[in-house]
Design a protein around this nucleic acid. Structure first.
Lengths: 183, 183
DNA sequence: GCTTGCATGTAACCGGTTACATGATTGT
DNA sequence: ACAATCATGTAACCGGTTACATGCAAGC
């Protein structure tokens, strides 16, 4: 699902400027998708050109002008299509797990450091997701997403905390891995 | 961590051809990183040009010729550096969670379908990771990675199975989400 | 005076995916 | 006969990240 489609989705929730869309990405999506201005503004241009959103310039006192985008009926329908036709999947790119995979090539101190840092990062996410789940204005789907994120983060923290000691003690045992054996 | 570095890492485990490296990606990494030939072969060319790996042509009877790549001492050191200096993080891009987030815009049937498909995909991953964990030749770090993956997948499956019914019953309650409220 | 927040953009770059091209051998 | 496995590559394309550029208002 590309950023263009995601912007369209956010605009199906309510009208917004590019700046606001970014905030929604940050606040509501950040645990499963990221996006910066460099992809959002061009995406909005394309959506406008395709007639899926309309754009109206707003003057504001004591604040910079802003462009308010609204979904057109065609845009709403387009998003529904894209949403239902997408195949539900997840792409993960974990530098943390790369480090664990090659842990026997790291020093014990550096390994401990990587584990600590990542644990802290996860802890931050967990706190954030716990605060999100308190909100009363989430749709059932959004709440589901937050619970899913929370369960995932908790499971990860649990493994890290339970296995950390043992890993640090024997990570240098390289063994011989046979990748020719049928996995 | 880019594919070039990851190839170098695999070659730190044992000498291999591009084709074999791809198999390692598939069999050992696939749950946290992906790569196809289109990125591996160019990466190996660059590594060779930089003197981080050496390349030797092998003739084989009854099989196509292959290029056997080996890490040089410089390459091994380069990988150790990259590994320890990388900051441990994870990037997730979940079309599944996008669908859940906008579940109120989907039909009940399509939503059920998305949940079922994704559940099946996770179940496949779980079975695969369980078979991996049986292996006796994994390093402690690799075993840690598999356990981490298994715990994560199990937690996800658990949420899906526990919340599926309730979500399908009331996903159409759109409510009014206020993204201006401080999250 | 400095930082933070609001607000919009662009251009270069990069890394990776997809699709295509080739070809022998082995197993069903 | 047909599909799968081994084996290497290229070229086009695409989507996203990074860094830069600008500017005003409010609060510390």
């Amino acid at each position: 699902m590309d950023i263009k489609t995601l912007c369209l989705g956010v605009l199906c929730l309510h009208d917004a400027s590019g700046y606001e869309i970014r905030r929604v990405f940050e606040q509501a999506f950040s645990h499963f998708h990221g996006a910066g201005y460099g992809s959002i503004y061009p995406a909005l241009d394309k959506l406008t050109a395709e007639g899926l959103v309309s754009c109206e310039l707003q003057h504001q006192d004591k604040r910079p002008d802003r462009k308010l985008f609204k979904v057109t009926p065609a845009g709403r329908e387009h998003f529904r299509q894209a949403l239902t036709q997408a195949l539900p999947g997840e792409k993960i790119r974990s530098d943390f797990l790369v480090q664990m995979f090659f842990a026997h090539l790291m020093g014990t101190h550096e390994l401990a450091d990587a584990l600590d840092r990542f644990e802290q990062e996860l802890e931050g996410k967990r706190i954030y997701l716990r605060s999100l789940i308190e909100r009363k204005d989430l749709t059932p789907g959004m709440r589901f997403g937050v619970e899913y994120g929370l369960a995932t983060v908790s499971a990860k923290l649990d493994v890290i905390r339970r296995r950390r000691g043992a890993l640090l003690e024997n990570h240098l045992d390289a063994g011989k891995v046979d990748f020719d054996a049928p996995l």
